[in-house]
Simulated assay, not measured.
Amino acid sequence: MSSAAGARPCWKPRTELRDREALKVGTLACEIAFDQWIGTDNKEGSVPPARQALAEVRAAGAAC
């Protein structure tokens, strides 16, 4: 068995794990953004709260 063949099984689970974690982070950011957006006068739309929420989630992750 070559080293490349041995590395392949490890690659897939790590990729799937990153995908699942990215989905969780995105979902959390969407939930935060919706909560912030629904609590405002809604004049600015949902994009600014979504960007802010994603930045906050990313910053929290970087601090860990």
Rank of each mutant, 00 (worst) to 15 (best):
A63S: 15
A29G: 09
D35H: 07
R14Q: 01
I32S: 01
M1G: 10
Q36L: 10
A63D: 08
A7L: 11
K12R: 11
A59C: 00
K12D: 07
E16D: 12
E44R: 04
K43M: 03
L23S: 02
W11Q: 05
P48Y: 05
M1S: 07
E16T: 06
D19Y: 06
G39H: 04
A59I: 01
I38Q: 06
C64H: 12
V25A: 10
A55P: 04
V25E: 06
A55T: 12
V57G: 03
C30F: 02
A62I: 00
D41Q: 13
A5C: 11
E31D: 14
L23K: 03
K43Q: 05
N42D: 10
Q36P: 04
C30D: 02
E21G: 14
R51T: 04
W37R: 07
S2C: 03
A29M: 13
K24H: 09
V25R: 08
P9F: 13
R18Y: 15
A63N: 11
Q36R: 13
T27D: 07
R51I: 05
S2N: 03
L23Y: 04
D19R: 07
L17W: 15
E16Q: 06
R58T: 15
G6D: 01
G61F: 04
A7Y: 04
A33K: 00
D35F: 09
A5T: 08
G39A: 14
G26M: 00
L28F: 01
T15Y: 03
P48M: 13
A60E: 15
A33E: 00
F34Q: 07
I32P: 01
E56H: 00
S2P: 07
S3N: 05
P48Q: 11
A63K: 15
F34G: 00
Q36A: 12
F34M: 05
E16Y: 05
G39C: 04
C10R: 13
D19T: 11
P49C: 02
A59W: 00
G61S: 07
S46Q: 12
I32N: 02
P48T: 09
A33F: 02
G26H: 02
L54F: 12
K43N: 12
R18F: 10
L17D: 14
L17C: 15
A62V: 03
K24N: 11
R51K: 02
C64N: 05
Q52S: 10
